[in-house]
């Protein structure tokens, strides 16, 4: 864990007069699992969007994986998203009219070329080998979230972002999803940043930071 995959310096994001993120200096070493905690409106999702290239900061510098995100054009940011980042949302967003395997293949298509065999094996890896041809409406919440995980890691990103991925899941599914993420991380060695307000979920990480009103108030390492 020598190099930092994320380096921010005075990172700020204002929405009009509201300051969602006060100047923030944050370093995340490569391979780390970082949990971000805070109550609603604390700026944790804003941080997430900035790091994932979905939003642009108002001030400060932001380098992810050696790239200066402020210098990228809109299409450049899209390229950064498909090549370097995998994102999992709270509301397991899938394209409603595509099957599970097609949803995964869509990510491949945007990245380079689709490869159905690879998409199938990715779904098998998350334990959905039997639900390849089902559309989102026919999948449970946990299953949908697992499709999203398969889709997020299909392009071997360096960084996996989770925006309360377990927010809508029951306890059993949450454990299942977290176990899966841990397993995959062990194999693929990507960096994880996970936003949550669940202390238990946060405990899966190596380090937890606490945000309040856009300010980093506390930081603690998980023992063991």
């Amino acid at each position: 864990m020598s190099e930092n995959i994320i380096e921010t310096n005075g990172l700020t994001r204002n929405y009009g007069d509201i300051c969602a993120l006060k100047p923030l200096d944050l370093q995340v070493p490569e391979g780390e699992w970082l949990s971000v905690m805070g109550h609603s409106g604390s700026g944790k999702s804003t941080l997430m969007n900035l790091v994932g290239g979905l939003d642009r900061p108002s001030a400060g510098s932001l380098r992810v994986g050696g790239k200066d995100l402020l210098a990228l054009t809109e299409d450049g940011l899209a390229r950064f998203r498909r090549e370097s980042v995998g994102i999992i949302f709270q509301q397991h967003h899938m394209v409603p009219y595509l099957t599970a395997v097609e949803n995964v293949m869509m990510a491949q298509y945007f990245h380079s070329v689709p490869d159905e065999a690879e998409a199938r094996s990715a779904l098998e890896r998350v334990g959905l080998g039997h639900r390849l041809k089902n559309r989102p409406g026919e999948l449970s919440g946990g299953e949908q979230q697992r499709v999203c995980i398969a889709r997020a890691i299909i392009n071997s990103p360096k960084l996996l972002l989770g925006d309360e991925p377990t927010g809508n899941l029951d306890h059993k599914s949450t454990i299942m999803v977290m176990e899966l993420l841990k397993e995959l991380r062990a194999e693929e060695r990507f960096t994880v940043i996970m936003v949550t307000h669940n202390q238990e979920v946060a405990a899966w990480g190596d380090r937890t930071i606490y945000l309040d009103d856009g300010v980093l108030v506390r930081e603690e390492r998980t023992a063991g």
């Binding site: 299409d75 899209a78 498909r82 949302f89 967003h93 869509m106 990510a107 945007f110």
Partner: peptide, 16 residues
């Protein structure tokens, strides 16, 4: 629009 937003989030550029 949710579907388009999702495609964008996954990394589709304007051309795609």
């Amino acid at each position: 629009s949710p579907e388009i937003a999702l495609m964008k989030a996954i990394g589709a550029d304007r051309f795609q």
